[in-house]
Amino acid sequence: MFRNNYDNDSVTFSPQGRIFQVEYAAEAVKQGSVVVGIASKTHVVLVAIKRNAEELSSYQKKLFPIDEHVGIAIAGLTSDARVLSNFMKQQCLGHRLTYGRNMPVRTLVDMIGSKAQINTQHYGKRPYGVGLLVAGVDEQGPHLFEFQPSGMTEEMVAFAIGARSQMARTYLEKNIDKFAECGRDELIRHGLRALNESLVQDRELTVDNTSVGVAGAVRASEQDGGSIAVEPFQVYDQQDVAAWIESVAEDKEGDAGAGEGGDAAGEGMDVDS
């Protein structure tokens, strides 16, 4: 059998200039369940599919608040994500303590990028086995970033990572022009529809397996200084996401005829079962 000698550690380049250990770490992200993020002019949302190990066990959380204005969605090794999450929380608190303001989102994301890069350049370290979507608002407005195990961080309009996320990305690419002007609920519904695309055949979104996270930024008028009022990042689970799930389920049913369901109120449907 062919033995790849260049893939044992993250300090060895292959003859093509690749670092296999980093590429393998990126594979670990694809083992995690799918998460989707979308940003509009006023809001940024994260939506996620949670997995449970068995029928009677609880579901693994996928969305984590970092600070008042930032939250993350994770795909991959949860314990690696916790290391990054704790680091981000500390940085945000430290920044708030010394400057009395929210940490700019890009600054925060660059910090975990640098942290992850170090792990790809030193022997005895391994890359993080987790990918993140970082959603946050700052004085510039809402932001969505993708973080990869290589330390690569990029600002996105919308993105999906995790198992079968390509389907969700295809949905997002198709609808990308609509997101900027979307309101809060509409953006969440786009997220859930993208999520739906990535589900395996017999699975569906339920109140048990779906998480939604939102942060918002409302800009005051120029006369009032044009500063941003932050709608803090909040995670919604269980019954709090029922109405959103219903409303996308409805437009799915009506899909054959009407195309887009619009903003159905989501009433009259049985939530249980």
């Binding site: 000698n5 260049y6 300090v11 060895t12 380049f13 292959s14 003859p15 093509q16 200039g17 690749r18």
Partner: peptide, 26 residues
């Protein structure tokens, strides 16, 4: 001689550095 950084090959090359250049060329 190309499996670790800082190793000279008999003709005096550090292959890992040359491979790093490949990463640049992409």
């Amino acid at each position: 001689y190309d499996l670790a950084n800082s190793i000279f090959s008999p003709d005096g090359r550090n292959f890992q550095v040359e491979y790093a250049v490949k990463a640049v060329e992409n």
